[in-house]
Design a protein around this nucleic acid. Structure first.
Lengths: 148, 148
DNA sequence: TTTGAAACGTTGGCCGAACCAACGTTGGTG
DNA sequence: CACCAACGTTGGTTCGGCCAACGTTTCAAA
């Protein structure tokens, strides 16, 4: 993790910088989540449930951009910790309805706080205005490339 | 790849945006490199060699931020294609001296052009000034987090 | 009404990037 | 000489992400 210098030609390259910055962000997030003994997939699912209420696994996968098969494993973990409940949907027996437990809602809130703290650490070298500018530019970049 | 919506709370988060943007950049780079039938590690090594001349594998690893063990495999690939030459260092028999062949120098140049093209595609939604602004902000972010 | 396509959860596997542990060889220093 | 460090190499692990296949269930068209 010690500052990969890389060829000088790469060091100023946007794609390389994005990669490096995302790598640092991922490390910070990962370290933050480690305190909860959970990982990115778990938080995304908890946050989606906290935000939009119970949903089927397939719905969760679509909303979080997580593959159905990975949702299975993550929900297994979360259910094993009592953070979510998996119940068959009486209206459509193909589906499982996933709901947050009280403990799950608590954990979602705490992880949200961790995420907020990480954002502050991540943007520490920038002024508030610069951080917002960066967010705006990244948003436009991402939205452009998300449409086809 | 269909626009992972994620919980709304995440969508505006710098760490998430960085991750998404880097993901798009990585995809573009990856697609570009696929035409050369090579990948990121290979390009970093070729570029480092083109820039600073022959070096030992350990040196290359340090300069490119690639683990020694991964350098072995990548150099195996490059040597197998005749893009680099691996020769024992007469002055220190622990080392291998890796040198670019003419074909390797050509490939490094061509891949550099691919990288340049990708940067243009990546920054397409931004004006030139905005692209430079993004680069500046990312550079400061990365440099800050690289120093411990 | 039967039949076929689609969605669902699940299992199992693959990939690329990154990291780490261990080993035998070689080099330099106390 | 003894020791430790650096080197190249093998082998293995993790994590996020993706894909294929299967049996079950639902729904719509023939």
């Amino acid at each position: 993790m010690e500052s990969p210098q890389s060829p000088a030609g790469l060091r100023t390259t946007p794609s390389w910088l994005l990669n490096q910055a995302a790598s640092h962000a991922g490390r910070l997030i990962s370290e933050g989540f480690a305190a909860h003994d959970l990982r990115g997939y778990h938080y995304r699912l908890l946050a989606a449930l906290a935000e939009a209420g119970p949903a089927s696994q397939a719905d969760l996968g679509r909303r979080c951009g997580i593959d159905r098969s990975d949702v299975v494993a993550a929900i297994n973990d979360l259910a094993g910790r009592g953070l979510v409940v998996r119940a068959p949907d009486p209206a459509d027996r193909r589906r499982n309805v996933i709901s947050l437990t009280d403990a799950g809602a608590d954990e979602a809130r705490r992880m949200g706080e961790t995420v907020d703290r990480v954002q502050r650490d991540l943007l520490a070298p920038l002024s508030a205005a610069e951080g917002e500018q960066l967010t705006r530019l990244l948003t436009r970049l991402v939205e452009h490339h998300n449409r086809r």
